[in-house]
Design a protein around this nucleic acid. Sequence first.
RNA 1: GCGGGCGUGGCGGAAUGGCAGACGCUGCGGACUUAAACUCCGCUGGGGAAACCCGUGCGGGUUCGACUCCCGCCGCCCGCACCA
Length: 834
Amino acid sequence: MSATDTTVSTTTHADIHRYDPQAVEPKWRAAWKDAAIYRVDDGDPKPKWYSLTMYPYPSGVLHVGHWYAFAVPDVFARLQRMRGYNVLFPMGFDAFGLPAENAAIRNNIHPATWTFENIAQMEHQYDLMGAMIDWSRKVVTCDPEYYRWNQWIFLQMLERGLAYRAGGSVWWCPNDQTVLANEQVLEGNICERCGAEVHKRDLEQWYFKITDYAEELLRDLDGLDWPERVKTMQRNWIGRSEGARLSFRLETGDELEVFTTRPDTVFGATFMVLAPEHPLVATITTDEQRETVEAYVQQARDTSEIERQTTDAAKKKTGVFTGAYAINPVNDERIPVWIADYVLMTYGTGAIMAVPAHDTRDFAFARAFDLPIRVVIQPEDQETLDAATMAEPYVGPGRMVNSGQFDGTPVPDGLPQVIAWLDEQGRGTAEVTYRLRDWLISRQRYWGTPIPVVYCDDCAMVPVPEEQLPVELPLDAAFTPTGQSPLVSHESFLNTTCPRCGGAARRETDTMDTFVDSSWYWFRYTSPHFNAAPFDPAKAAPWSPVDLYCGGIEHAILHLLYARFFTKVLRDIGLTEEDEPFKRLRNQGMILAAEGTKMSKSRGTQVGPDELVARHGADALRLHLMFLGPWEQGGPWNDRGITGMERFIRRAFQIVSEVGERRLDGEAPDKDVAALRSLTHRTIRRVTEDIDDFQFNTMIAALIEFTNELMKLRDQPVAQTASWREAAETLTLLMAPSTPYVAEEMWSRLGNAFSVHQQTWPVFDAALATVETVEIPVQINGKVRDKIVVETGLAQDALLAAAKASERIQEQISGKTVIKEIAVPGRLVNIVVR
RNA sequence: GCGGGCGUGGCGGAAUGGCAGACGCUGCGGACUUAAACUCCGCUGGGGAAACCCGUGCGGGUUCGACUCCCGCCGCCCGCACCA
């Protein structure tokens, strides 16, 4: 044992400056908790900063993707705090939804049990990560204290006509046994949740009238600091089109309305096309055509949406003639009315005027069925278009021809004239249409917010009075999906009394889409237990809007559009004055499994952080994830390189840790001190700017370079001076947001008072951050031939002279003619010779 | 088809039009160690003994100078997808 003792004592001595995350992390985690250093105080007079990260689904355990998504916002929030902001950086759980229900069914456990167990586990994992979360503000959406306010907002919307029930053709997922919103259908007919093929069904459902806000949702995008691609996706999804609504009289006497963005081509309309589902189809079809038309309508209905919608250039247009004719209102021509599946009932009026000469689809249809084509727009400075020979439609600008009084009118400039005339004639009006559809919010599943209305035989649909909220989701329901809500078979939930007449009534059994929960949750963090409204406007106002919102790009449309819609509704209700919820948005890329595919729990390709933390420490994992590459890019996971982060942490720790033992009253040459201070201040600048620019990988590179330089200097005289302490302290502070644990330990080893996370972020001194000399490459004909060291800020002429003084350069120039000399101060010199 | 993004060593990646490959990993060599791990030092795009030459998907162009800007291709990824 005595031999062992010796070993232990020497090892201990040697290891004093060796960082051990396993010993240090739990210590500081406990200290932070005891001192409640992350507790956010509403009354703090400092300027506010609201940093929000998309709350996770409590799916079980955190994987490295969660860490990736969360580490960066955590670093940013910590920086803002050190900069002197009062930072709100909350977290919660998006706890309702299908996965809980499905997992519950699979494991024969109640969704609530499953969910709350997962939340406890995940909360612990966030703490392991060293996240700066104030858990006292936690929001859990399956808590009645939360979802009662979904119901309250629903009732407000119902009162304002923004929530309504309507029948219609809706998407149905046969696997999840529920309807879906348009936004939740991918690639034409794939369920966003489970990947099953979905199809249409005619059902009566609940909707939110998001279309009322289409224009505002589109317009307000302009003022947001969001990634351009997200704004583009939202613009496309809203799909605003300007044009006109035109009315065509049918020979049957019916009026057929169409929407067109090209009213200037109305003189070229040579036929009309209705969607197969158009209500007029049945009434206008002639007896001779009835059989053909009915067969086509049936076929269209049976053809899966994906087949119908795929725009394969080779896909042939199909359709049939109804036997009916319309009169073109501008030239009184008799034109045939067809039906075809390329016209969609869900857009515009479900009917079009076909102008084959100037529309790609109409052109293909006309060619396929040998329908007339008439040119009415002639491009300028080009050969006259000939309908008989043209190989493709002309869709560009030009002048109107074959258009009566409008001949010669330029388009698109002349469009307003045409619309004005149509309006005068009573044939049409200017109209704007949107692709955006109302949001279908009812679901036939169990684990969600009950929709707070009842149906009474006498009073019909009656809203549940506000004071009876919440309508609680019964925890003892049999929730296996059957195609209708499981609540239908829960007698005591279903049967109730009518709030209006007191008679027998049935509750609505559908639950709300979980995207309702996430459409306002960030307001709730500002007053998580407020019980008079969804949130306390007085508390929310000072924090609003969210300054920085971070999350996955997969929410570019769904959640972010709904959240914007809700904000505008809540504004109109009077709960907030904000028009927009999230001022600045940043999306992280996705961390994929090593083989480049999406990480999947079921395929076992999900990488968990716990083992990595145990082996390398939380700080090293945080750094590794940030160092992988640009945060907005994502990429396949690998753990190569995490050792590099560990090495960096150890080196930084060692340097700082030794400082505590030094007297730091030594002397060193002035230029060495100046060089060290310059390095320190340049590093402050780099790290600060990189975080502000969301360039976390290069931010870490700057920290590593700083540490490597210090490592080289630690035996030099300059390491015995006060500027060495400045360097060590600065390194510690700069590391604090990224590596909260080791930075705390370093701060403590420096002999400073707890906590490093309550210190002020260092500010660089521009004068100190300069360098005295700079190395300038000297090129001959664009190739580097020498490098000269000159004073920083040396002017152009002097720089050129210095370059030409170089022997190597003189050799290169001698005997040649100098054609051009370029000298860029601080950059380079290039001499062009021949 | 339309819209957006990307393409750089063995790998992840860096580079306001100005020294391509910062930083990290890997690999190789060395020091320390009884030994290993850890740590430390050096080298690490290709060719060449060297001077140098070649090199950022391909082909052109602008420029004293292009990974960066422009034009035309090729490949990959994402979004939308008959939106009248």
